[in-house]
Design a protein around this nucleic acid. Structure first.
Lengths: 375, 375
DNA sequence: TTGTAAGCGTTATCAC
DNA sequence: GTGATAACGCTTACAA
C-alpha cells in the first residue's frame, strides 16, 4: 500500500466514523458516545462479518477452503474495522515470533551500525523484525541481553560477542534451542554459523605492504584480546611478521580496547619510546584515529616520522590528513550474510557454516605511498 | 548476577542433571530418556513446588502476602528448573510489553546510531527494551515500521521522521493511543513530545562566523526539505543571512538528500559556477564530507578558495584536512532525553513538551581560522 | 495465605 | 465450508 493510498484510506475512515449512525452529533449520553475505541480484535471482525472467529482467522490467513463470499465479507469487515492482528497473541499461539535478536558490543560504532543495517535489510525481506540490544562492551550485559531476547522467544539470534565463554553461552541456550549465528566477535565452535572478516589475510596485506616500504620495526595497536577479531589479528600479526624475519618486541604491541581514546593513549606510549617503531598497524579505524591524534599532539608526522596503516577503512578515510592506508571490506555484507545464514538456519537445520568476508588493501598516503615514490 | 556466578550456576545445573535419578545412564527406553527439554513454564514450577500457578506467580513477582516458606519453595523450584517467564504470555495478559519502538531514517548514520545508543541506555535503565526499525529514508517504510511496531503492542514510540504527514501518522495511531516522542525529524504538533537540535541557533552561529571572516556570498547544502531539521536549517539560513544584509541567490542553495554522495554532487555544482560562492555551509557532516571530496576532485582548496563549515561535528572532525569548523552537540543526549520524555509519558500523561538541545561552535581551520589570522 | 477460574487474542483440531 | 472448543503461558479478581 502506498502512502497516497493510506492517506485516502485514512480520510475514508474518518468519513465513515462521522456518518456512522451510532455517533449522532446530538447523542450526548455516555452510552451513545463513540466507545473508547479499543483496538479491534479478530472477534470483532468475525462478528461484523457474521462468521466465527475460526473462519475469520482462516479467511485472513488464506488457509483452507473458504467460500469466496465469506472470505470477501471477512476481508471487508477487517478493513472497515482497521483490524491489525495482535502479534503477541499470534506468537503465543504459534510459538513463532518472526523476530530475531541482534546483540553487539556497541551500536554506535560505524562498523556495527553498518552490520545492523545489512542484517536488517536481509531479515526484513525474509519477514523478520529485529530486536536490538547493545551490550556496551560488557560480557555480563551481553549475557543479560541474550536472556532477555530468549524470554521474548526470538526465532533467532545474531551476535557479535565481546568474549562470552562458550559454555556459559550454551548453558543459557540449552533449554531453548534457538538458531544463532555469530559475526565478527565469534565464539569458537558455538552457534549454527559464524561470519568473520578475513583477519589473517588483512594483517598479511598490511604487514607485507609495510615491509615493501622498508620497515623493519612495526608496532601494533591490537585491540581487545577478549574478542575473537582482536585476538585473530594479533596472532596474524605475529605470524606475518615472522614470515619476514621480524620479531616484534613486546613493548611494541599494545593490547588495549577499541575506543579512539585507547588508540590515543597506546599511540602516545609507542611514540614516547627512545627509539620508536617506524610504522604501526592499528587493528581498527578508531585506534588509527587515536594514533593520529597522539601523533599530531606530539608533533610526529605521518608517514614521515612514523607510517600508519589500519585494519578497517572508514568512509572518510581519504579525507583524513594524511589519507589512511587501510584494509577495506564491506561491513554491510557481514551483517547481510550473517542474516542469510540465520534465515536458512531458522527454516531448516543445515550444517554449521563458517564464512569469511574478503578484504582488500587500499593504498593511500599514511603508509608512505605517494609521499616518497619509493614503494 | 555476575558472570562468574553464572558460570557456577551453569556448572551446578549440569551436575544436577547428571545426578538426577530420572536420567540414569543405563535407562535406554524412550520413556526414561531425558524428555525433549521444552522450556519450563510457570505450571512446571508450581508443580515442583507443590502449589498452584497463582501462588507461584505471586511468589515470583513479589506480590501479595505469602508464607515465607512457600515463597522459598517456589523460588527454589524456579531456580532448579531454570524458569524464565514468557514475556509473550505475560504481555498478552498484562497488556504491557515494556518494549519501545525506535524508528530512524538510517541507523548507520553516526548521528542516529548515537541517538539510539543514548535512548537505549535510558530505556534499559527504566526497564524497557528497544525494537528497532530502519525506515531507509522512505516515508512508506516509515509508516510500515510504525504499524509493525504497533502490532507488537510496543508501549511507546521514539521516531525520527523522514517526513510523514501528520494526519497519516495520527490516523495510524488513532485506535491505539501509544505514547510517542519525536526527535530530530519531528512532525509539527504531533506526538507527546519532541526533541530537536537548536537548528536556528546553530545556523546563526555558522553564518555569523562566516560573516566575521568577511564572506558576503555564502552557499548552503540544505539537506532534505521533507525532514524538519533540513527545513529548519534552511529557514534559519535565510533569516540569518538576511540579518547581515545578505540575499543568497537561488542557485547558491542546494536542496538535496543527506548522503555523502549528494554533498559531492551538489558541491560540484556549486564549485562549477563561473563566480562561485566564497563559503559554504553544509547542513550535515556527511554533506560537508561530500563537499570536501568535490573540492579536492576539482582542486579547490579549503579554506583558501572556498571556506566550509558544517552543522554537525563528526568525531573525527579535527583529523580531517582541513580540520572542520562545525556546530557541535551531543547526539547521545538527544536520544537519551527523548527517551526520558517517553518514559515519563508512558508512566503518566504529562503535557506535551518540546525540548531543544543546545549547540556550540567549534572553530577549526576549514572556515579560515588559523590559516589567515584575519578573523 | 492460597486456590479456582476467567481471560488476554490468536490458531489448530476436531466435529458437523 | 464452517463452527465449537481447546490450547499458548501468564496474571488477577474472587473465593475459600
Amino acid at each position: 500500500m502506498t502512502l497516497q493510498e493510506r492517506v485516502w484510506q485514512r480520510r475514508n475512515r474518518l468519513r465513515n466514523r462521522f456518518s456512522s449512525p451510532a455517533s449522532s452529533e446530538s447523542g450526548e449520553s455516555p452510552a451513545s458516545a463513540p466507545a473508547p475505541r479499543r483496538k479491534s480484535t479478530l472477534a470483532d471482525v468475525a462478528e461484523q462479518a457474521g462468521v466465527s472467529t475460526s473462519t475469520a482467522s482462516r479467511a485472513l490467513n488464506g488457509h483452507g477452503g473458504l467460500a469466496p463470499a465469506t472470505r470477501a465479507a471477512v476481508e471487508d469487515a477487517a478493513a472497515r474495522l482497521n483490524f491489525q492482528p495482535s502479534a503477541l497473541a499470534r506468537s503465543l499461539r504459534t510459538q513463532r515470533t518472526f523476530t530475531v535478536g541482534f546483540v553487539v558490543p556497541d551500536v554506535s560504532s560505524p562498523f556495527y551500525a553498518a552490520t545492523l543495517q545489512g542484517a536488517q535489510g536481509t531479515l526484513e525481506r525474509a519477514g523478520y523484525r529485529v530486536m536490538l540490544m547493545d551490550a556496551n562492551q560488557d560480557v555480563d550485559r551481553e549475557l543479560a541481553a541474550v536472556e532477555t531476547l530468549l524470554s521474548h522467544q526470538v526465532d533467532g539470534l545474531l551476535i557479535s560477542s565481546a568474549g562470552l565463554p562458550r559454555d556459559v553461552f550454551e548453558g543459557t541456550l540449552e533449554d531453548r534451542p534457538t538458531p544463532t549465528v555469530f559475526f565478527d566477535g565469534v565464539i569458537e565452535g558455538a552457534g549454527d554459523g559464524a561470519v568473520t572478516l578475513d583477519d589473517e589475510r588483512g594483517i598479511v596485506l598490511l604487514v607485507e605492504h609495510l615491509v615493501e616500504h622498508g620497515h623493519e620495526r612495526i608496532g601494533l595497536l591490537a585491540g581487545s584480546q577478549r574478542e575473537s577479531a582482536g585476538a585473530a589479528r594479533f596472532r596474524a600479526f605475529l605470524s606475518a611478521t615472522a614470515v619476514h624475519g621480524l620479531k616484534p618486541e613486546k613493548r611494541d604491541v599494545k593490547l588495549c580496547s577499541w575506543a579512539i581514546e585507547d588508540g590515543r593513549r597506546a599511540g602516545a606510549e609507542l611514540l614516547a619510546e627512545e627509539t620508536p617503531v617506524t610504522a604501526v598497524i592499528a587493528s581498527s579505524a578508531e585506534l588509527a584515529l587515536g594514533f593520529m591524534s597522539a601523533a599530531s599532539a606530539r608533533g610526529a608526522r605521518i608517514p614521515d616520522d612514523v607510517a600508519l596503516v589500519a585494519f578497517d577503512d572508514p568512509y572518510f578515510g581519504d579525507l583524513l590528513e594524511p589519507p589512511l592506508t587501510a584494509v577495506a571490506y564491506d561491513p554491510r555484507s557481514v551483517g547481510a550474510i550473517a542474516a542469510e545464514l540465520l534465515v536458512a538456519g531458522m527454516r531448516s537445520q543445515p550444517e554449521r557454516r563458517e564464512l569469511r568476508i574478503p578484504v582488500k588493501l587500499v593504498r593511500r598516503r599514511s603508509c608512505g605511498c605517494g609521499a616518497d615514490r619509493a614503494q
